[in-house]
Design a protein around this nucleic acid. Structure first.
Lengths: 156, 156
DNA sequence: TATTGTTATACTCTATAACTATA
DNA sequence: TATAGTTATAGAGTATAACAATA
């Protein structure tokens, strides 16, 4: 049979939906687009965005507790377990028992973790540079301000 | 045993991470915060964000094909199946066979779907109004512009 | 009693491959 | 052959409840 002519039994979908006026919708679309690109940059190092965040926080706060990580990253406590398992199995981070409180385990980067984090930072910087080029320096600043306000919006 | 004094075996985590300077990270945090609030508004009507998007697109484009929905929403084709199954099971949308192409099934809202969409729109409007109040009218416009650029960033 | 880390469970989402029926 | 919808599967994320050890 011949390749279909442009005849349609229904009107073609053109473009321009009310969805494109919704901040919620655009935020999701933009987040997916940006995180897909970032995943691509981190993939060959086998690091996810959450793992990267943990590495940064552990580097900035040596000995940070798992519950503190969960709170900072706004994820549930159980979520931290497999994330730290993976980092520990790869020798990038260590869990050490707290001297004073036997319940908490404190997270430290290993030398290998610090070294990998350096490479990851370089890749993230390149990624952020692309974003800044797309938005302009002032546009980027406006965006960061707006996003911070939205994060704080929670809790009314 | 007594409630713990503020003594710590490790430095306390204060605040202000380099993560808060990353657009990728803030985008994720803001998206989570905003979508949690929206989920709360839609929950009692048992509608997810994706289902809402499908209802809107089907309302704006009666007879839109499933593959068109997937393309517009930037999700994989298989993802549409359970979404439409749910909407169809609730009598909110219908899949009708295309007259000219037996492969494609075209999506139409039912009267109940149109009615529910009206209520959902009201709730989304209230949600977006809160966002506008938090950002200011011009701040919101800036944000929408920036997010649209980030969505287009994909594909370089 | 309350908290930290953990286990377990269920549900959603993402990503692929492959099947079917149509073209 | 190519495409639309579907099925199946595996992996990741989210959300809860509950448990052991500890406070």
């Amino acid at each position: 049979m011949p390749p279909n002519p442009p005849a349609r039994s229904e009107p073609a979908v053109t473009s321009g939906s009310e969805l494109d006026e919704s901040v919620s919708y655009l935020l999701k679309r933009a987040q997916v687009a940006v995180s897909r690109e970032l995943q691509g940059l981190f993939r060959e190092l086998d690091v996810t965005a959450v793992q990267y965040s943990v590495l940064v926080l552990a580097d900035e706060n040596p000995g940070i507790a798992q519950s503190e990580l969960a709170g900072r990253l706004d994820v549930e406590r159980p979520r931290m377990v497999p994330v730290l398992d993976k980092l520990a199995a790869r020798g990038l981070a260590e869990r050490r028992a707290d001297v004073q409180d036997g319940r908490t385990r404190r997270v430290h980067l290993t030398e290998a973790g610090t070294k990998l984090l350096h490479e990851l930072r370089l890749r993230l910087e390149a990624h952020e540079r692309r974003i800044t080029e797309a938005l302009g320096s002032e546009g980027r600043d406006h965006l960061v301000t707006a996003l911070n306000r939205l994060v704080e919006l929670r809790g009314q």
